[in-house]
Simulated scan of single mutants.
Amino acid sequence: MEIEAAVVEEEGGAFDIETVELEEPRANEVLVRVVGAGVCHTDMVVRDQLYPTPLPAVLGHEGSGIVESVGSNVTRVEPGDRVVLSFDYDDDCHSCHDGHPAYCEAFFEHNFGGRRPEDGTSPISRDGERLSGRFFGQSSFATHAIATERNVVPVGDDVPLELLGPLGCGIQTGAGAVLNSLEPSAGSSIAVFGAGSVGLSAVMAADLSGCTEIVSIDLEESRLEKAAALGASEPIDPESVDDVVEAVRDRTDGGVDYAVESTGVPAVAEQAVETLTQRGTLGIVGAPPLGAEASYDINDLILNGRSITGIVEGDSAPQEFIPDLVELYRQGKFPFDELVTYYEFDEIEQAVADSENGKTIKPILRVGEP
């Protein structure tokens, strides 16, 4: 079938909407008519080839939509179901069997390879040329996407479908970093570095967890104001203080129990660990370029009992965690819609620009009718 898709031709190139061809779903695949698609920093990371997904490519990995058809082996969803598209995994390795698909041994191949890991094919082509069309198992910057039974998550019909796509990556990454990985106790303290969609999702999750001191650090005043509205007790602009580490320590009686680093800047990760109190834990979720390194004083970690943990996709099992987040949203306890600005599909370049310059926290493209 012919569909419309945003194609990135070359490193740093534009997201150009073109007509391409999409295969029918194979036995374990699902054809989804895309309703909404979140714009995530990772899309720009791949556009700029900081992660090596082959170009030309159709990106997009926070899709939501309606199932149109399913392969012969699919039993979890059927045509007409409303779904969120999340990351893909092999469902066969030790991590997947242990309930941690975000740490799938084949995660990179399934999400950044641009092809089906099983045979190296792509469901998207253009004039006979295969494009990378399995980005995060979906490539949802398109009117239709081929996903797998593994990475489609059914959702109810009482929430706006076009809103839910970012639950598949950015929102679940920030919320899951707190709720699934760090698991702060009520009354504890946390510092969240970066107040984009991931960082603000972490702030909301910390508030849900009962953290009584929630420090939000960002350079954008408007984002700090949003953080305060969503539960942050101590907003800090690094440019307004002499020393960020000392500012966090001063406002939290000597340091925080937990920290989340969502900026992807190694120097910020180095600062974040220094804000921890004894036996504190830093969760790193920001994605720097491959090969990026940060330095730590080993004795400082040892003598203070501090821990550093990497976190992928909020250590989420999407089939369970995304419905939990939807229910929290229904109950008014997780208002992630306050992060969202909508754009029409043909405004994708503006949405990307507004995300990169900080004007918009979480852009969502309206691709089709709910």
Rank of each mutant, 00 (worst) to 15 (best):
V152H: 08
V152K: 12
V153D: 01
P154W: 10
P154F: 07
P154G: 05
P154S: 09
P154Y: 08
G156N: 10
G156C: 11
D157W: 10
D157M: 14
D158S: 15
L161A: 07
L161W: 01
L161C: 05
E162D: 15
L163Q: 07
L164H: 04
L164Q: 01
P166M: 06
L167Q: 13
L167V: 02
G168I: 03
C169F: 14
C169H: 11
I171K: 02
I171N: 00
Q172F: 03
T173V: 11
T173W: 10
T173F: 09
G174K: 10
G174L: 14
A175H: 02
G176S: 13
A177Y: 12
A177R: 01
V178Q: 10
V178K: 11
L179W: 01
L179Y: 02
L179P: 01
N180M: 15
N180F: 03
N180K: 15
S181V: 14
S181W: 08
L182T: 07
L182F: 14
E183Q: 15
E183L: 05
E183I: 05
P184L: 00
P184S: 13
S185F: 13
S185Y: 07
S185I: 14
S185H: 11
A186R: 11
G187H: 11
S188N: 08
S189N: 05
S189M: 04
I190C: 13
A191F: 12
V192R: 10
V192A: 14
F193T: 12
F193W: 13
G194Q: 06
G194N: 01
G194A: 04
A195H: 00
G196T: 11
G196Q: 05
G196L: 05
V198R: 06
G199W: 03
L200F: 09
S201F: 04
S201P: 10
S201D: 05
S201Y: 07
V203M: 12
V203A: 05
M204N: 06
A205V: 14
A205W: 04
A206W: 08
L208A: 10
L208E: 09
S209I: 04
G210V: 07
